[in-house]
């Protein structure tokens, strides 16, 4: 009775999605993961703070008051005031908008670039793939941050420029992952079937491969957004990122740096903690997505 001891085809290992539908299992495992809930809560909190907060907390973030500088947190100024007497909480909210917008835009654009590149390289194979991946190897050896700083010191940075440059410098990891995925998918029956039924390259790419690499793409997108938020904050901290006067978390931190020894802790902790919360949220969410959607983890490697 050797046959009877074999598991039923659908009882054993999970069955990977074939056409983009049937991800229900993955989503259920995602929603039952406490990390996912923690990540979504943190990011949700920051989005609410930045975009809904100003509707409730009616203090002008631009209004200076030179008679009320470096005020410690009080009922009037919940997070105190800065060197020009501007309300720190109002600026934290307004700054969050720009920091999050630029971070999300750059992260998502970088993943789009990387996904397209990885799809093309993986599907093309042969010498084109070899050349494309060699280029990725070379770019990987470039110190991205230094180049980013260089570009920002040459051109006066704007939000748009930052989004473009950050994404142009950060798509490499996604490209590698997506290509590796495509290489394994190419060997699968449904791709052969689609090919033999006359699917063109574009149709194969968009209709059959893309839905199957979505898991990996979502995971990298999450981390890419986190990376971009951090990069924007870092550049602005160095004075080479988002230009004033619109506040952003990195720039606010840079302003606060000068007043550490006046014990203006409310200029140091809130913007920093906001960045940490964004990064924590993204890391929680990314790890939760990876645990549910990464095929290598799904096969029970860890």
């Amino acid at each position: 009775m050797a046959v009877a001891s074999l598991p039923a085809p659908d009882a054993g290992g999970p069955i990977a999605p074939e056409s983009g539908r049937g991800l229900g299992r993955e989503w259920r495992s995602f929603w039952s993961n406490p990390l996912a809930i923690a990540g979504i809560s943190l990011l949700g909190f920051l989005l609410l703070l930045s975009f809904v907060g100003p509707l409730i907390y009616h203090v002008n973030p631009e209004a200076t008051n030179l008679l009320d500088t470096f005020a410690a947190p009080s009922a009037g100024h919940v997070l105190g005031t800065d060197a020009l007497g501007r309300d720190e909480l109002a600026r934290l909210m307004l700054g969050g908008q720009l920091s999050l917008e630029v971070g999300f835009a750059a992260g998502i654009l970088s993943v789009l670039l990387g996904t397209l590149y990885g799809l093309v390289a993986g599907l093309a194979g042969g010498w084109l793939d070899a050349i494309m991946m060699r280029i990725v190897d070379i770019l990987f050896a470039l110190p991205g941050l230094y180049i980013l700083l260089l570009v920002d010191s040459i051109f006066s940075p704007s939000a748009i420029l930052l989004v473009v440059v950050i994404s142009v410098l950060s798509w490499l990891g996604t490209a590698r992952l997506v290509r590796a995925e495509v290489l394994t998918l190419k060997q699968r029956e449904f791709v052969h079937a689609a090919r033999s039924l006359g699917s063109g390259t574009w149709r194969l790419m968009l209709r059959h491969l893309l839905p199957n690499v979505m898991g990996v793409v979502m995971v990298t997108a999450t981390f890419a957004v986190g990376g971009a938020i951090l990069t924007v904050a870092g550049l602005s901290f160095l004075g080479l990122g988002l230009p004033p006067p619109t506040p952003n978390w990195g720039g606010m931190l840079a302003d606060g740096t000068n007043y550490i020894f006046q014990n203006a802790w409310w200029l140091i902790y809130p913007p920093g903690l906001a960045i940490v919360a964004a990064e924590l949220g993204v890391n929680f969410l990314g790890d939760a997505l990876r645990a549910s959607f990464d095929p290598r983890l799904r096969e029970g490697r860890a």
Partner: peptide
């Protein structure tokens, strides 16, 4: 892991 280098330095 989620902490920016510059902020931890400041803290």
């Amino acid at each position: 892991y989620s902490m920016p280098t510059f902020w931890l330095g400041l803290v």
